[in-house]
Design a protein around this nucleic acid. Sequence first.
DNA 1: GCAAGGGTATGAATCGTTTCACAACGAGGT
DNA 2: ACCTCGTTGTGAAACGATTCATACCCTTGC
Lengths: 338, 338
Amino acid sequence: MAVSVREVAARAGVSVGTVSNVLNRPEQVKPETVARVRAAIDALGYVPNDAARQLRAGRSQSLALLVLDVGNPFFTDVARGAEKRAAEEGLTVLLANSDESAEREAGHLDVFERQRVSGVLISPVDGDYGRLEELRRHGIPVVLVDRGADQARFASVSVDDVEGGRLAARHLLERGCRRLAFVGGPLRIGQVADRFQGASAAVAEHGSATIQLLGTDEMSLDEGRRVGEALRPLIRETGVDGIVAANDLLAIGVERALLFGPDPIRVPDEVALVGYDDISFAASAVVPISSVRQPRELIGATAVELLLAEASRPDTEAPRHVVYAPELVVRDSSTRSA
Amino acid sequence: MAVSVREVAARAGVSVGTVSNVLNRPEQVKPETVARVRAAIDALGYVPNDAARQLRAGRSQSLALLVLDVGNPFFTDVARGAEKRAAEEGLTVLLANSDESAEREAGHLDVFERQRVSGVLISPVDGDYGRLEELRRHGIPVVLVDRGADQARFASVSVDDVEGGRLAARHLLERGCRRLAFVGGPLRIGQVADRFQGASAAVAEHGSATIQLLGTDEMSLDEGRRVGEALRPLIRETGVDGIVAANDLLAIGVERALLFGPDPIRVPDEVALVGYDDISFAASAVVPISSVRQPRELIGATAVELLLAEASRPDTEAPRHVVYAPELVVRDSSTRSA
DNA sequence: GCAAGGGTATGAATCGTTTCACAACGAGGT
DNA sequence: ACCTCGTTGTGAAACGATTCATACCCTTGC
């Protein structure tokens, strides 16, 4: 059933070592022999067995990418970037999903370690960095994705969320907004806290401006709608004139609630709105939503890069950290037509 | 660096065979010995090497799921279902993405064969079933996902798209619609053709009703908006009163174009609308959209099921095909308030 | 006292590939 | 003739887990 090098060798009239050489260092084998071996491979339909190769090599040709949510376009784009870069190194990416569950995360990490993957890229469920330490002790390099500064002991690639929040708020301030609202939560999510902090800092630079926090339990469309309803009186009575949402789903929900409730509020004329992530739905919302874009594919590619560096990093050297700058994409939701 | 059974055995004062037995058939080992071996495993931080196990077993503990688009919620839900069912069998699912590219698909299949995965679940890029035949000849079972009837030689799990189209159209007819439009394309996509065919059949059963096809180049929000504009005169002048969209993205785009163009058209009062797939955005559209739901997780679980059956299927028996019935989810977009 | 049999443990063979020290061979130099 | 080199190919060892025929010990029954 299974065709092995031995049979290929027999058919081509060479030794197994030569077959292996044809596969891995063809330049060291006489062209004529290469041809004969290749012919035998084709004739028999030989496919090398990775398990055997790995066993010998001690390490697999795959690296793992473990994300919080495969359903999130942010992560699928990161994955795309990682795959491209990994392919250049002859590596395959195993994509896995922890679904924000520590248990599933642990399960996947176990499998990866048994597989002796050549590295793990992970956007961790918060908490248990101990398991990651252990992986590294066992010789498997680890790179944190989209979670950075707080964990200096691991290499990481992330985006400056403080700066992103600042960009969003500053943009609104430049458009003349003075009473801002920040929608997002829970604050224990590092990204959310950073974005709020950045927005607050921008506001602080403007003597006359204020910002208030409207917390959410999750970052979904429905929560956005709920908060949108709560915003209505704030806009009409308290004079809120600008909204920063911690992600685009919230922003879209907020926009809908404002535009289509009883007594509609015009966006951007009565209140300006900026989201975060620049998902494709943001651009095609009823009023296209300004948003803060992150270099998603680049994040993935960089993660692979750091992994390679990590693999050959001497203990005397500290892990590397890469932080990218976010970028503001301006659309109608923050561009006052009047 | 790498801890192996040998070292565990030495530390526990037993043979390597016994360590293996502790891991795989603990009931055959004296409890006291089990404890001693377990202690040694913990002390040394031993993690079994899957490559070695696979090499011996001839087959990996993983199965592959190769989808057209990981960004599509349909497939991530299928993946979730497959993972659950696979976990029950002690199998891991490798999720990979062909991005509708035949080349990427071929690349992934090569890797999977080298890995000796225990099976491949695939929603194939159309065309090259030859490679799949070859995989099977090499002893790797194959199950087609979401592509069925046309390829009797492979086991498959799919949803009856003709019936889905029929459901959607019949629902509109029952609501009193008589001039229907079907939005979708290109028609070479099997699912689209089937849905249109089903809708047409439903219309044919009604003497007085008609249906016309409005083709699209792709199934996106933007195409939906474009077609929505084109629909405006048809509704106002030709009297189109019901729309079936081939997927929810199109439906959402159409709805937006109708509601927010100059001279807005009310949904469902002036025209009723049904989408397809029941993605989460459908329920939270401005006017929530009726849609045809497919049992996504069940599809994944069934695919794994068929794979197991396929692995032990005698040549004398034909591959199995499972076809699920779609389900109509009624929301406001097709429920005339007047 | 001995054979039979059940419960435990052993260790060598095996899976398929890669690697590496070495052999075979011919060409060129002296 | 002899030595040296370079090119090309060889084949056995190694990777780490599993398996299986075998051995050992202890009861049990006669």
